[in-house]
């Protein structure tokens, strides 16, 4: 079994996180943004697993299970919201959806 040093493992987790972050920032499609968030969550989970295996502790895997649960819940709520959004506005462009903005404040 090939062992890889922890720095490289963590670098992979960081790369994954950056990929997700950049995806979140540059994408306008809200589904892609949601997916980018999933990538970031997974990178965090990966970092937990790396840490757990490094110190031979089960906590890392436990935390990863939690993160999976949270992300599953998040995705289900997020997808439901996206469905509603598309239903109302017929668009998936996040920038077009700034209607919660207080118009009066903008005029000031």
């Amino acid at each position: 079994m090939v062992t890889v040093s922890m720095e490289i493992q963590l670098a992979l987790a960081g790369l994954l996180f950056l990929t997700g972050l950049v995806g979140l920032l540059v994408r306008r499609n809200i589904i892609f943004m949601l997916m980018s968030i999933e990538i970031m969550l997974n990178s965090a989970g990966l970092a937990f697993v790396i840490a757990g295996s490094h110190w031979m502790q089960a906590d890392g895997q436990v935390m990863f299970i939690f993160i999976l649960t949270v992300s599953a819940a998040e995705v289900s709520v997020g997808l439901a919201l996206i469905l509603q959004m598309f239903h109302h506005y017929r668009t998936l462009d996040a920038d077009a959806l700034n209607r919660l903005l207080d118009k009066k404040k903008m005029e000031n």
């Binding site: 979140l24 809200i30 700034n98 903005l101 207080d102 903008m106």
Partner: peptide, 15 residues
Amino acid sequence: SLLSYTQNGRLRWYA
């Protein structure tokens, strides 16, 4: 007014 300018309702801007 400067601060309220940052609150523009754009999700990506907040991110």
